[in-house]
């Protein structure tokens, strides 16, 4: 257990030591989104008939920050360790692959939740938010960050260079988050794009998280939860399988 706790603590300390970049910067980015989109759209859009656009946007921005930072934490930590070679210090000790997985994913979740709370705290000043079903919000934040933390591990294991990781981030994670309904309700999309959104797992994370605030969503929260939980099970199993076999780590 000490091995796991140490690795977890080391991962926490790693992002905490550069908190300006890992926490403050994403909070500022989310605030800029809110400032710009809210300024332009506040008077034009009402979502679900009752929810003001700025209020609608905040949970989306919170969840987007949560997901992006969960991914960024595990992926960048791992690839830095691989490229600088200090991954060896984690591979030499008797840390099991399950402990390795747990430490990286939990640390990613911790950073994601700190950033998410930061975004929430920073934006709550400008917006009147209700919290209709907090447990749903918490459940989706936890599962969503765990999924992206696992995905970050997979990307970090797979990528040999920073630009491969950047490609993964820019060509997979970014489109999936931007097209997941952070900035809009998918019901405002044409049918084709609405159907396509149904295949984006991040849509369910955002939609379910938003349900926690407004008590309304595009999809029933239980459905979203089932999809998200299923995604987590598959990704966690895949990550554990890669770690167990030592793919690109012990070769």
């Amino acid at each position: 257990m000490t091995g796991f706790l140490t690795l977890f603590y080391k991962e926490l300390l790693r992002f905490w030591k550069v908190a300006f970049q890992t926490i403050a910067a994403p909070v500022l980015t989310a605030m800029l989104y809110l400032l710009i989109f809210a300024q332009v759209l506040e008077d034009h859009v009402l979502v679900y008939g009752t929810v003001r656009y700025t209020a609608f946007l905040v949970p989306g921005l919170v969840m987007m920050s949560v997901l992006q930072n969960a991914f960024a934490n595990s992926s960048s930590s791992l690839i830095q360790s691989k490229i600088t070679g200090n991954i060896i210090f984690m591979l030499l000790p008797p840390i099991s692959y399950i402990q390795f997985f747990g430490a990286y994913v939990l640390a990613s979740m911790a950073r994601a939740l700190v950033v998410g709370l930061g975004v929430l705290a920073a934006t709550a000043w400008f917006v009147e938010l209700s919290i209709a079903a907090p447990l749903w919000a918490i459940a989706f934040a936890l599962l969503g960050s765990a999924i992206l933390g696992s995905l970050g591990l997979i990307a970090g294991i797979w990528a040999d260079k920073f630009d491969q990781l950047a490609a993964f981030q820019n060509f997979v994670i970014m489109p999936l988050t931007f097209l997941s309904g952070v900035f809009y309700s998918i019901h405002s999309l044409p049918d084709f794009w609405q159907d396509l959104s149904g295949y984006n797992p991040i849509f369910y994370m955002i939609d379910g998280f938003r349900y926690g605030f407004f008590g309304v969503s595009d999809v029933p929260p239980a459905t979203s939860f089932a999809v998200v939980a299923g995604c987590f099970a598959i990704l966690a199993a895949a990550t554990l399988w890669l770690l167990r076999g030592g793919y690109k780590l012990r070769y």
Partner: peptide, 21 residues
């Protein structure tokens, strides 16, 4: 190889912890 985030003592404490100590 080294981890640029940490001091010498932190590095050694972590390594010791990884081994369960």
């Amino acid at each position: 190889v080294f981890d640029p985030f940490f001091t010498v003592r932190e590095t050694l404490r972590f390594q010791s912890g990884y081994f369960g100590l």
